Simulated assay, not measured.
Amino acid sequence: MIDLGLARVTRLLGELGNPQNCYKAFHVAGTNGKGSVVSYLSSILTYNGVRTGRFTSPFLINEEDAICINNRPITRQLYEDVKKAVDALNIQKTIQATEFEREAATAFEVFRREKVEVAVIEVGLGGLLDATNVLMKENVLCTAITKIAFDHEGFLGSSLTQIATQKAGIIKPGVPCVADGTNDTEVLQVVKSVADMKSSLLYTPVGLPVGYSTRDILEGEFQKQNAAVAVQSISVAYPQFSRGMIIEGLRNTTWPGRLQWIDMGNQRVLVDGAHNPSAAIELAKYVQEHMRPKSPITWVVAFSKPCDDILAQLVQPGDKVIATKFGSIATMPWIKSLDPNNICESARKYTEESNVTQVANIKDVYFNDNTVICGSLYLLRELYR
């Protein structure tokens, strides 16, 4: 169940003793790129000796993967111990917190028990009413807002202005904010308006700063902006960090499931979590440059929502499309895999009908050497398992 609001999680954290107030934090929102920015920040801090907690969502393989200390997932035992305590308190006090609210509370409590100095927190959905938006201004070093695009319109609004208003809700009074300077003008206007209202010094970087190179960051043209947001955020919060210290942290960054090459038998395939049209555009750019010159692409896809706008960005005549689905998610039963028949119907608009097929499970796919797996992080979860 998705039920945005802060009342339940605030009460739950209060019963826990407000663990989120026991360390400093970076808070990151956005539609695309926020996971990469969180990873850059966590890597830079960890490399430079800052004991760092990291909370991201959704988890990639196991629940504990979403909560890291110094870039390493916590143990299953620690996760279960804290989650059970949080769930018990939720029941005992009849708080009725949602699953994500309890996950966020678990992360905040783990970070207190593990005595982190800084927590890097990724917003789950939106920002203003997201369960992570309980961080106090006194503890937030910097907020960051990545690329904003259409996604989750049913919860955040049907216009970019409405969506940006929700994302900008993480901006804290008097706390610096870094926003991706390549956002649409209407998005930046909203962010600037909120920043001005809250007396938050706003930075809007465009491109990597002088002295930084694409060799130091993750693959993909769009990573220039994600890295720029991370570098500016760190520079604001830790002016004592030299360029060399930051670059080494960038070089050590990993972020599974985003433009990641993996070995499947004797073939290397590209996997990416692109699940909305704007992310698909960036994936298509990468594929155009690095894969299309070789041969048509085989797309292995599953989605949790209508996919026509995504496939329109990816699939070209001559490409093959293999539609599949992912299984149910115990912690998020409301998320359902789109019927592969619906995917095939959309795919036939962009490539020959004979090139469109479906399989029941991604494990049944025979991979060639020019394959991309994308459409949902939940599909990648099944692949990695």
Rank of each mutant, 00 (worst) to 15 (best):
L135T: 01
K115S: 12
M136R: 07
I121P: 00
A97W: 01
T132P: 04
E122F: 12
V110E: 02
A105I: 07
E101H: 03
R113S: 11
D130Q: 07
T132Y: 07
N90E: 12
E114M: 13
A119F: 04
A107F: 09
N139D: 06
D130H: 04
K84T: 15
L125T: 11
V118S: 06
V120W: 01
M136P: 04
A97V: 06
D130P: 03
D130R: 05
E122S: 14
L129Q: 04
G124T: 06
Q96M: 10
L135W: 05
V82R: 06
V86M: 08
V110N: 03
N133P: 03
E99A: 08
G127V: 02
A107E: 05
L125Q: 10
K137G: 00
K137D: 00
Q92G: 12
R113Q: 15
A88T: 13
K115A: 13
A107K: 06
E114F: 03
F111V: 13
A104Y: 01
V110L: 06
T106F: 04
L135G: 01
E114L: 12
N90R: 10
D87S: 14
E103A: 14
K137Y: 00
V82P: 04
T94A: 15
K137L: 00
I121L: 11
T106S: 07
V140D: 04
L125H: 08
V116Y: 04
L141P: 02
K83P: 00
K84A: 15
A104T: 14
V110I: 15
V123W: 04
N139V: 02
E109L: 15
F108Y: 11
G124K: 04
V82F: 10
A131G: 01
M136Y: 01
L135S: 03
D130C: 06
N139A: 04
V86D: 06
D87K: 12
E103F: 15
V123Q: 07
V140N: 03
E103K: 11
T98L: 06
F111G: 11
L135F: 07
C142V: 12
E122W: 12
E122H: 13
N90F: 12
A119D: 07
A85M: 14
R113W: 11
F100V: 07
E138M: 01
E103S: 11
R112E: 05
E101V: 01
V123D: 09
C142A: 09
I121V: 15
G126C: 11
C142E: 06
V82G: 11
A97C: 13
C142W: 02
V116R: 09
E117S: 13
N90H: 11
G127A: 08
T98Y: 01
N90M: 07
T106Q: 08
K83F: 14
L135H: 06
V140H: 03
F111D: 05
K93R: 15
K84C: 14
E109A: 13
A131W: 01
D87F: 10
G126F: 01
K84H: 12
L125E: 08
V110D: 07
N133K: 02
V118W: 01
A131M: 06
V118Y: 00
G124F: 07
K137P: 00
L125C: 10
R102C: 13
A104W: 02
V134E: 02
R113P: 11
D130V: 03
V123A: 13
E109H: 08
A88K: 15
T132G: 09
Q92S: 15
A105Q: 01
V123E: 11
A97L: 00
V140C: 10
V116K: 07
G124Q: 06
L129E: 05
A104P: 00
A85V: 09
